[in-house]
Structures are given as C-alpha cells and as structure tokens.
C-alpha cells in the first residue's frame, strides 16, 4: 500500500476543510494509506510574494520540518509521497523555496541541513491532480447518462511554475466529465495572493473578466486545484449575488467516485451554491 502524506494548505485547513476530507476519501479509494503531518500550517507564499522573506522563511522552515518528520504510525519502509491540495503552494515548495534557501543561506542562524530537508520534501511532493493522473483508477460508480460539464480554471502557478496544467483535465476526462475551455483560459484571475487585498480594483476587474469567460461556457460547475483562485472568484460571485457551484478537484473526484455527478447533484454540491440576497 502506498503511503501518502497530505499537505492541505492553510486555505483548505481554515476555510475549506471539506476539500481535505474529500481528498482523503479519494486517495484511500485508490489504495493509499493517508497520513497528515500535523505540524503543517502554511507554506509562507503570501509573505514571500509580498517581499516579507524573514516571515516566509520562518513558515517555510516549519512546513519543511513538518513534511520531513517521521511518518505518522503505519507500515514503514515504503516509498512515501506527499500530495498537496494547492497547485500554487506545491509550486512554492518545489520551485520557489530554493530561492528562499539561497537568501536564507546569507542570514544569521543558517543551517545547511535545510537544503537536504528541502530536497527530500520537494522530491516526493506532488500536486493532487499529478498524483491522481498516475494513481490506479478507483472502482467507478455508474454515470448519469447526461455527461456533466465543468469548466476548469487552472491557476497560474500550477500552469506556469509547476507546469502541471494538463493533469487536472486528464483526470476529469478519465472520469467521463466533459471539460469546457473558457476564452482566454491562460489569463490570470487576479487573485495573486495579497495582490487581491492590495489592489482590489484591478484584482476585481480581472475576476469579472475571468468570471464572464467561465460563465459563458454554461458549465454546471467551476473546478480548480487552487482554493486561492476559487475563493477570490467565488467571493466575487457571492458579492454580486450569483449562485454557482465552485469546487476543488478533490471534491469533484469524490462525487464522481460516489456516482453523484449528475448535473443537479453537482449544482448543489459546491461552495457558493446558495444565493445571498
């Protein structure tokens, strides 16, 4: 049995824990023994991107220590993967931490062993869709006859920094879900971490453009591998009084596994499905 440690990200932990629970179910169905390194909090990306590197480095160390810790109880001596539920955070750990390490190497209190720990952690870290795309398929529940149509929003770091843009679509298609492509699909949604707070006007103009393109596909739901983008886009839907099913890939795969993918079921399943007057 493959051991998989989950790296949920702070947004999933705090705001969307259902995504984490769905991921556990999905991975267990595919034969993984799932562990959760409980020392994890946040990868520090928001601080890193905003230029607050001492804070980012403190968080990075905490995360590396957590993900590099001995595994939670279970049969040992096996190949172990870590699976992240945010493309952007996985990109941060794999592709940006080396730059942070280079900087930290010039700071007081530097310990070279961080490079080793990073190499160990980064070497076995995958984003969920990457893992799913390579995992054995789950015993599939039967499908509704009308194929479900979702529109996939691929976050920019997932697409460009992690270069894992294609996996989620492949996973969805493997489940028989039809994936709509929005116009301008590779344009940023305007989230950008703290950018969404620093520059709300530009950030929101970008969200509105993105939502227009996503909604134009008339898909049953919007799916992504990043709750950052989804909370920004969904939060905008909520504020403008639009109800739409907004889901993380883990939740969609979980629904598919359980045979609950009919458009009507999907429309009730996600976040932001209820209209707020």
């Amino acid at each position: 049995m493959e051991r998989v440690d989950l790296f949920v990200s702070c947004l999933v932990d705090l705001f969307e824990p259902e995504t984490g629970r769905a991921a556990v179910a999905v991975m267990e169905r595919r034969g993984a023994q799932v562990g959760f390194p409980s020392g994890q909090t946040c990868c520090g990306q928001f601080a890193y991107n905003a230029g607050h590197w001492p804070e980012a480095w403190a968080m990075a160390k905490a995360l590396l220590a957590a993900l590099d810790a001995p595994p939670t109880p279970g049969p040992d001596g096996q190949e172990r993967a870590t699976v992240g539920l945010s493309g952007s955070c996985v990109a941060m750990v794999r592709e940006e931490y080396p730059k942070l390490l280079d900087w930290a190497a010039g700071q007081p209190g530097w310990d070279t062993s961080w490079r080793v720990r990073h190499a160990r952690v980064a070497g076995r870290l995958w984003e969920l869709s990457q893992w799913l795309n390579r995992a054995a398929p789950a015993p599939s529940a039967h499908q509704d006859t009308r194929p479900t149509r979702v529109v996939l929003h691929t976050g920019c770091h997932m697409r460009r920094v992690l270069a894992a843009g294609g996996d989620a679509a492949a996973v969805l298609e493997g489940l028989g879900v039809s994936v709509a492509t929005p116009e301008d699909e590779d344009q940023c949604c305007g989230f950008g971490g703290t950018y969404a707070m620093n520059e709300p006007k530009i950030s929101t103009a970008l969200a509105d453009d993105k939502l227009r393109a996503l909604r134009a596909t008339q898909a049953d739901a919007m799916v992504s591998c990043d709750w950052g983008c989804l909370l920004h886009l969904g939060g905008r839907l909520s504020r403008t009084g639009v109800a739409w099913s907004v889901l993380h890939l883990a939740q969609l795969v979980d629904l598919a596994d359980r045979g609950e993918l009919a458009p009507a079921q999907l429309a009730r399943a996600g976040r932001f499905v209820r209209e707020v007057p």
Binding site: V12, F15, E16, E199, T204
Partner: peptide
C-alpha cells in the same frame, strides 16, 4: 481590501 468587492466563507466550524 478583499471585502471591498468580495465575500469569504468564515473559518470553518471544524478545521481540517
């Protein structure tokens, strides 16, 4: 700044 134009879900009753 976020809330000038967007809502957020609250912190969940039970975190992961």
């Amino acid at each position: 700044g976020w809330f000038e134009t967007r809502d957020m879900p609250p912190i969940a009753p039970e975190t992961f």
